[in-house]
Design a binder for these strands. Sequence first.
DNA 1: ACCTGAACACCGTTCAAGT
DNA 2: ACCTGAACACCGTTCAAGT
Lengths: 214, 214
Amino acid sequence: MNESVWLRPAKPERRPLTLAQIVGEAVALLDEEGADRLTMRRLAERLGTGSTTLYWHVKTKDDVLDLALDSIFGEVPPPAGGSWRERVAALVSGWRAALLRHPWSTGLLDRPMMGPNALSRTELLYATLAEAGFTGPDLPAAAFSLSTYVTGSATAQARDQAAAGPAVHAHLRERRDTYPTLAAHGLDHDWDATFTRGLEYLLDGMAARVTAPS
Amino acid sequence: MNESVWLRPAKPERRPLTLAQIVGEAVALLDEEGADRLTMRRLAERLGTGSTTLYWHVKTKDDVLDLALDSIFGEVPPPAGGSWRERVAALVSGWRAALLRHPWSTGLLDRPMMGPNALSRTELLYATLAEAGFTGPDLPAAAFSLSTYVTGSATAQARDQAAAGPAVHAHLRERRDTYPTLAAHGLDHDWDATFTRGLEYLLDGMAARVTAPS
DNA sequence: ACCTGAACACCGTTCAAGT
DNA sequence: ACCTGAACACCGTTCAAGT
């Protein structure tokens, strides 16, 4: 004779785990605790499963990282309008903002970025530049230098802001004899202003190529 | 009664392990096998010791990585002479070459670079630009955009070259409808030429700032 | 189709102990 | 001062087994 339903422990709520849930939770975990705390076991725990369950949805941990990285590229808004320069600047700034919102992402930029969100933003950049008149080797060069500038600068900023502190200042001040220029000007700059100014150098140099007669 | 010296196994050659040896062997290991194969145990094995021995010379594995990264900055030659533009271009190209010679290094650029070799090259960059006439916010902006361009482009190149292959081409060709510009122009470019052209954009834009009357 | 548990082959790091 | 071995608390991943 079986016990009544009410006395049996309710079956543990069988909503099936999805890949989107895994990626979403991975991003949350990375945001809250950082990259070195992302563990298959810890991630699974947050999702209420065992770690080995994840391997049905995902081949390796690297898959999780790649998916998490691509998902944050999804936050980059497509530029609204304006001149090609304005559209490029908007795209690139949104790109940078997304990376800086998730500082762990800059530590993953050494792995292939073939996800749909990354590719669609890259396509947008290429298309905008092609429309602006960049042709031949100038097109990949312009696209490459811009995307490189964004990822490089975000990496540098995330890195230096994480390390920032009195220890760093002291270290450089003590060595101001060997690094005089750096000690005098290398600290305490406005990250946004510096980024924007550097971007202007780049865009100025690029603009001369499209507008100038070859 | 003791056996003669000759019959006893020779004491295992007690040359003390140095930090320089550890770093050198770490770089060799990274060059030969890549970053994910660098293990304290494997590194120790190559040095003929136990893994725990390393912890007398080094606090953590991250120390080894930081030291290895800084050591390759030591390969960057100081620029010989010429105009500030030529000196900057030489410094930056040497920097890039060192990173590309050790592709694993681009995966470590998200960690603080406070080592003597990194700092001395950064100082060199700042000093050259200051001498060239960059002042106020233009000095950190110029230095930042250049170093950012180098590290970003090397990261992108190391990443894409490692991933390069027919699979990537096929993936993009299959999706040429959604990424038309990218599929048409994003593959098979000359890395060196692209880098140099992008650097010219940047230097052109920068040069306008120093030479032009404000 | 999806989830679980046990198990394997590793890790980085600590620490008491040796010379 | 420098090195060793055993041990701890983890890892990513596989796989047979369950539903």
